[in-house]
Structure formats: C-alpha cells, structure tokens
Simulated assay, not measured.
Amino acid sequence: MLPLGPAFGALVVQSGLDWWWAGLSAALIYGGSFEFLLIGMVTAAAPLASIAVAAFLVQARHVFYAPGRASASCGSSSSCTCTGPAARPQEPCSAPSSRTVSPDWTSP
C-alpha cells in the first residue's frame, strides 16, 4: 500500500507543477481530499472563485460530523468535559443518563 504523501508528491510532479507545491498545499490546506482536487484545478487554470467554491463544498462536509459527536459523547449535559480530536469525555457527565455509548461511538 502506497502512503498518500508520496502519492500526492508524485501527482504534483507528474502534473507539471514544481515540487514545492506539495509542501505548500500541505501547510496551507486542512483536508487531503481538497489537496488532490486543487492540483487538478491549478493545472487546468481554474478561476480563483471556482477554487474557493470547491474548497467550501469539499470542507463543508465536516459540519455534519460535530452534532453527532457532541450528542454521542456528552449526552444532554452541558457540563461534560470533552477533549481531544475524537471528543471523548475525560470524565463522566454530571447529569446521569440512561443512554449508553458503545466504544466505537455508534448508537447502542
């Protein structure tokens, strides 16, 4: 299995862009899928407005992740302490809940 970093670097070079495009996009763009899309748009000389709209649409999918994570990890209590990238509670919520959450963060 080829890691995505070297594959992305090879795509940048094969697309005719300079090697530093790979590092620049990795430093400025949070989202690997958009990095791959951006290379195609840059080589096709897409207008900046089209690139901005595409970036918004690709990254907008993350909005739908947050509500599910918050309700699964903290229940109805607002005093729950949730930290880390997976928003897993570090201590139990102060209001007991009859709802349990399975270890893989899906519905019980």
Rank of each mutant, 00 (worst) to 15 (best):
Q90N: 13
L57C: 06
A46L: 14
F56W: 08
A7Y: 14
T81H: 15
W20I: 04
R69Q: 12
L57I: 11
P6C: 02
V42L: 10
A54T: 09
S33T: 13
S94M: 09
T106Q: 13
S98C: 06
Y65A: 15
C80I: 11
Y65N: 13
P89A: 04
R99W: 09
V13Y: 04
P85Y: 05
P103N: 07
P89E: 03
D104W: 03
P92C: 02
S50D: 15
P3G: 05
S73Y: 07
P108V: 03
L2A: 15
L4A: 14
G75D: 01
P6K: 02
T106L: 12
S73T: 15
F8H: 04
A55I: 00
L24Y: 08
A7D: 09
P85S: 09
H62G: 10
G40I: 03
Q90M: 06
W105P: 00
P96T: 11
Q59R: 14
P103H: 08
P96K: 05
A7R: 14
S76V: 11
G40P: 00
V12G: 00
T106W: 09
W20F: 09
S71Q: 15
D18I: 02
E35W: 01
S73F: 08
S50G: 15
G68K: 13
R61A: 14
L24W: 06
G16M: 01
L24G: 08
A7N: 10
E91V: 15
A55P: 00
A70N: 10
H62T: 15
G31H: 03
V58D: 07
V13K: 06
S94Q: 14
V13E: 07
A60I: 08
Q90F: 07
D18A: 10
L17G: 01
P67R: 05
P89L: 05
S25T: 15
A27F: 10
F8A: 00
A86P: 03
P47A: 11
S71P: 00
S76F: 09
V101C: 11
Y30H: 12
T81A: 13
V42S: 01
T43E: 01
P92K: 03
V58G: 03
L17E: 02
L4K: 09
V42W: 02
P92G: 05
P103V: 02
I29Y: 01
S33D: 10
C74G: 15
E91W: 11
S94K: 12
C74T: 07
V53S: 05
V13P: 01
G5N: 09
S97D: 15
S33E: 13
C74R: 12
I29T: 05
E91Y: 11
L37I: 10
M41K: 04
S107L: 04
L11P: 00
A95T: 14
